[in-house]
Design a protein around this nucleic acid. Structure first.
Length: 452
RNA sequence: GGAGGAGUGGCCGAGCGGUCGAAGGCGGCGGACUUGAAAUCCGUUGAGCCCCCCGUGGGCUCCGUGGGUUCGAAUCCCACCUCCUCCGCCA
């Protein structure tokens, strides 16, 4: 959620931002509609004005109520009969005011809900250096790390991870489908060890960088999910909900790490707070299908080590943290020996909470293309405002402390399923075995994964 | 799951249906003392929102959350959430 002052003080900035983000706030004003950004801002302003006008009227009535109640207190000194008469008048007046105020309160609540609902859908502002546009060509290539293997020179055609993994018997999608449905799977023997090894490896790197380790809940209240900027309900939601409970299966530990400190006020000296979270992640993957979704690449459940930071509410500070996150992600995949590229994601592809986002895309020989393996976003104060995560800050004045919203940065250390895809495809050998990346060997306990 | 108890400001903790945004303490900030620090003493210190003639201006709200009773609710009633104690069950 953005600061409402932007709507009131700088609507042009809001309109320009909407235009580059291409995220619809109102369903009947999609980004394809003419002047949709301007029309969206106009409607938001109108909702805000309506709410404030009603609120003002309600507060006036409340003020009168308070005056009646206060007048009642001064009655004690009067003679009994006069006191009774005054009392009767005041009670009647107070009662009438209460009735009116209640009617108005309903309208105020409705107007407020309408404004807030719309406002919550307005995307975050955007980093000035983020590339504009949308679509795969719009992203800015920042770096390429590692060199893809020359399989032709090695004399064989690389297979996709599913073929290799099933050949090795380290993944079982049939059993997954039988038990939980399509896009569920079992990791078996060395597959299970590989999964755990990736978790341990990522955690060790995170801890070395000063992140405090957490195994988080895999479920969270819908309110927390929404607070992080995810849509917990609705036809196109990526989030599973639990029936008869106000709970969602989390799509990422970003939700549980970010929600940890909801409604708290931190000490400025405690920032930045660096958290690592291990959780299962669940995604409905509504509407996703096709070759790119094959096998372990797009599944309903996977395990992930997430990095999370709460920083001072200063764009330079969170921006620096964001680059630090990117460096850690690069370190992790460089360590795994996977060739990848780093993209500065275009404005039209950013999710609503992100101010800026970098993706790591691994080279996947089985596909002959790149596929996203990790992602890191600076969400500035967008999530903190809704979750009410603040810190006491020494303001410009002497000794005065002011509460400010923290900035929140998240990033993937490792999503095991996709890392396994990248490892299996990049480390496969002509005989169908897979070499274990050196950094994982202590935990996998072998150099090569071969069929049992 | 059953039976009790409790949720108050950054933290701890008092609070009678009206003078309670709320005692007291800690912490923070400013000052005195000190070469400096500690100790001591004095003062000060909640948040969110709305309006305007934008000021040492006016108003509204907030005591777990949401409802209710009342002219008036931190205080009374109901529901929910969370925590604690005891019992039961259980990896």
């Amino acid at each position: 959620m953005l600061d409402l002052r932007i709507l009131r003080d700088d609507p042009d900035r809001l309109r320009e931002n909407l235009a580059i983000r291409k995220i619809a706030v109102f369903d009947d004003l999609p980004p394809q509609a003419p002047d949709w950004a301007a029309a969206t801002v106009a409607r938001l302003s109108e909702l805000d004005r309506r709410y404030r006008a009603l609120l003002e009227e309600e507060e006036r009535l409340r003020h009168e109520q308070n005056e009646v109640a206060a007048a009642m207190k001064g009655l004690g000194a009067l003679p009994a009969d006069e006191r009774a008469a005054r009392r009767k008048t005041l009670v009647e007046k107070g009662r009438a005011l209460r009735e009116n105020e209640r009617l108005l309160a309903e309208q105020v609540a409705k107007a407020r809900a309408a404004r807030d609902e719309a406002w919550a859908r307005v995307p975050n502002l955007t980093h000035p250096d983020a590339p504009r546009g949308d679509g795969d060509d719009a992203h800015r290539l920042l770096r390429t790390v590692g060199t893809p293997r020359d399989f032709e020179a090695e004399g064989f055609v690389p297979r996709d991870h599913l073929a290799v993994a099933e050949g090795l018997g380290i993944v079982d999608f049939e059993a997954g489908a039988r038990v939980a449905g399509q896009k569920f799977y079992y990791l078996v023997e060395d597959g299970a060890l590989l999964d755990l090894a990736l978790q341990r490896y990522a955690l060790e790197v995170a801890r070395r960088h000063g992140f405090r380790l957490h195994v988080t809940p895999d479920l969270a209240r819908a309110e927390i999910v929404a607070g992080l900027g995810f849509q917990p309900r609705g036809p196109s939601t990526q989030i599973y909900s639990v029936a008869d409970a106000d709970l969602c299966l989390i799509g990422t530990a970003e939700i549980t790490l970010g929600g940890m400190l909801a409604d708290t006020i931190l000490d400025a000296e405690d920032l930045p707070l660096l958290l690592a979270g291990l959780s299962h992640c669940f995604r409905t993957e509504a509407g996703a299908a096709g070759q790119e979704s094959k096998g372990l690449y797009r599944v309903h459940q996977f395990t992930k080590v997430e990095l999370f930071a709460f920083t001072h509410g200063d764009e330079a500070v969170s921006d620096a943290m964001h680059r630090r996150f990117l460096d850690i992600e690069i370190e992790i995949f460089e360590g795994l020996g996977i060739p990848f590229r780093v993209l500065d994601m275009a404005t039209g592809d950013l999710a609503a909470p992100a101010y800026r986002k970098y993706d790591l895309e691994a080279w996947l020989p089985g596909r002959g293309g790149y596929g996203e393996i990790t992602s890191t976003s600076n969400c500035t104060d967008y999530q903190a405002r809704r979750l009410k995560i603040r810190y006491r800050d020494a303001a410009a004045g002497k000794g005065r402390k002011k509460n400010r919203f923290v900035h929140m940065v998240n990033g993937t250390a490792v999503a095991t399923s996709r890392a396994i895809v990248a490892i299996v495809e990049n480390y496969q050998q002509a005989d169908g075995t897979v070499v274990v990346p050196e950094v994982l060997r202590p935990w996998v306990g072998k150099d090569v994964i071969a069929p049992v």
